[in-house]
């Protein structure tokens, strides 16, 4: 049996300010899954992702990626993960091709391998004709796609997407989802956080809802939609959205 892509046990995080961002979170993301991690703003999603990727230090608990502890073998687990963060954070003075090829370099991939691979990924994501344009001149949607390309260049087994489609128009979002869904068919596990719950409902096979640093719901999408009665809010946002609003407002 395959190791889960991500195993989190009793994860806690208290910031220096005293804010308890995660209060004993336990979570399992099956290998090859499209997993949606949902939650309102400030629920702890980005903190959790930060810990998994090594950008935030945990206070307690354990995290394993494909069975490897992130603390004991950080170099191994980092090589398995691709991160597309919430903030646009590439060097704005660099060209997309250089951004992606440099990222490959940090993973020890030689330029002779990285350049054709980067061109292929950028082309697949619709940035083929923008490869040599300076980064800050790209549109918001293009910058997002560049972030995804950068996260994929080292062929990670586990891709983390923290609100990758924020501010992206509908048409582009759909093409991005098609591309990402195709990746899961190649065996890549995707952990997604998004505020577009309808899309999460359609794409993800498993879901977890986090609120105030605690997981308040986790399971397969089918199971969650079947067992939780959300009622119809009349907003037409889909069943998952109703469940989400109901559960998070109950906690409030």
């Amino acid at each position: 049996m395959n190791e889960p892509a991500l195993t989190i046990k009793n994860l806690e995080k208290t910031y220096a300010s005293g804010t308890q961002a995660l209060k004993g979170v336990s979570l399992e993301v099956p290998s090859g899954d499209f997993f949606a991690l949902l939650g309102p703003n400030g629920a702890g999603k980005t903190t959790l992702i930060g810990i998994v990727t090594g950008l935030v230090t945990k206070t307690a608990g354990s995290v394993s990626v494909h069975g490897i502890d992130i603390e004991k073998e950080p170099e191994w687990t980092r090589a398995l993960i691709g991160l597309c963060g919430q903030e646009i954070n590439f060097d704005p003075w660099m060209k997309p091709l250089d951004v992606v090829v440099n990222q490959a370099g940090y993973y020890g991939i030689p330029r002779s391998v990285a350049i054709p691979r980067a061109k292929k990924i950028l082309g697949d994501l619709g940035l083929g004709d923008k490869m040599d344009q300076i980064g800050f001149r790209l549109s918001g949607g293009m910058k997002r796609r560049l972030m995804i390309a950068r996260a994929l260049i080292h062929e990670p087994k586990f891709l983390i997407l923290d609100e990758p489609t924020a501010g992206v128009d509908v048409e582009l979002r759909r093409s991005m989802w098609d591309y990402l869904t195709a990746l899961t068919k190649q065996g890549i596990t995707i952990l997604l956080t998004t505020h577009y719950l309808e899309e999460a409902e359609r794409l993800a096979s498993h879901v977890a809802i986090i609120n105030k640093g605690e997981i308040i719901l986790a399971g397969s999408m089918e199971e969650v939609l079947k067992t939780h009665e959300g009622g119809t809010s009349g907003y037409g946002g889909g069943k998952l959205e109703d469940i989400f609003v109901k559960l998070t407002s109950e906690q409030t």
């Binding site: 980092r78 993960i81 991160l83 954070n89 060097d91």
Partner: peptide, 9 residues
Amino acid sequence: NIDEVLVSP
């Protein structure tokens, strides 16, 4: 973009 290096091995 320092995160690019920090998330890498």
